[in-house]
Design a protein around this nucleic acid. Sequence first.
DNA 1: CCGCGGGCCTGAGAGC
DNA 2: TGCTCTCAGGCCCGCG
Length: 293
Amino acid sequence: MPELPEVETVRRGLQPVMEGTKIARVEARRGDLRFPLQKDFLARLDGQTIVGLGRRAKYILADLSSGDVLLMHLGMSGSFRVVEGMNGQQPGVFHHPRSEDRAHDHIVFHMASGAIVSFNDPRRFGYMKIVRREEMEQEPFLKGLGPEPLGNAFDAAMLARACAGKKANLKAALLDQRVVAGLGNIYVCEALHRSHLSPKRQASTLAQRNLTPTDHAKRLVGAIHTVLNAAIEAGGSSLRDHRRTDGELGYFQHSFRVYDREGEKCPTPKCGGVIKRFTQGGRSTFWCPKCQK
DNA sequence: CCGCGGGCCTGAGAGC
DNA sequence: TGCTCTCAGGCCCGCG
C-alpha cells in the first residue's frame, strides 16, 4: 500500500508523540511479521528515548538514545494509530478506544507521556528491525536504495544515467528502488501520465547517447516532484488500508488522473482519450495510450 | 548483471 | 446467504 507520500504522512503523524519522548514499554503481540522480530527487540526499545524520527524511501527510522535505529516498513497493509493521554491506565491488554478492527495491532508502543502508538498490519508484509547506527551504511534493506525523489541528488541527469542501457520498460525502472527510492505503483502511473510518457517505453530512452538527459527525463522528474508533493500535502492516498495516524483518511485518491480510473476520459486537456489498464510485471498499469508516448 | 514470475499474507468485492 | 475467484499501495528470491 504505502508509497512515499503515505509513509511521510505517517511519519509526520508520529513525530509529535514520539520524537523527544521516552518509550516506557513495547508490547509485541505477534512477532511474526514479514520477518521474525529479533530476539532482543523489546529489550533494545524499552526505556529508550526517540531522539529523532526520520524517513528513507518507504522506511520510517527512529533514532534511539542508545545509538540503535529502529527501522519500520509498512509493507502493503501496515498503518500506525496514535492515542494520546492514556496516562493512569495500566493496559496489560490495550484496547483501542475508537476502533473498528484492532485485531491486527501487532506492536504497541507505550510512551512515557501516556500516548499509545500501535502498529497494525493485517497482511503482515510489514516488518521492524533494529540496527546499530554505525552499521546503517551496510544495512541490507537500505544499502541498495537509490536517491530520494524529493532530494537534491535526484534530477534529470541522474535519472537518465540510471536508466541508460536498461532494457526494461520505463514503468519497471521507476518501480526499481535502486533507480529512485520511494515510488510505487500508484505514483509511477500518475507521474508517467503527467509527463505524457508511455509506461511501455524503454527506460534507456530517457538518456541520449552521451548520457545527457532528454527533455522527457526533465519532464518526468518535474512530474514526480509535483505529484509526490501534492500527495503529501493531501495526507496520502486512501484506497483500502492507508490511514493517517489519527485514523483520518488521506484524500489524494480524488486527484488521481489515471490510477484506478479504467474507462474514464483522459483528463489531459484536449486529449479525448480513454484510460486503459493492462498488466506489467504482474501489476496493473493505468494509462492513456493517446497522450502518453 | 538483468528481467520475469512466484510467493508471502489477509480481506474486500464481484459473480454465481 | 455463502461460496469461489480475483485483486490489492511491497519486496525478496530463484530461475533462465
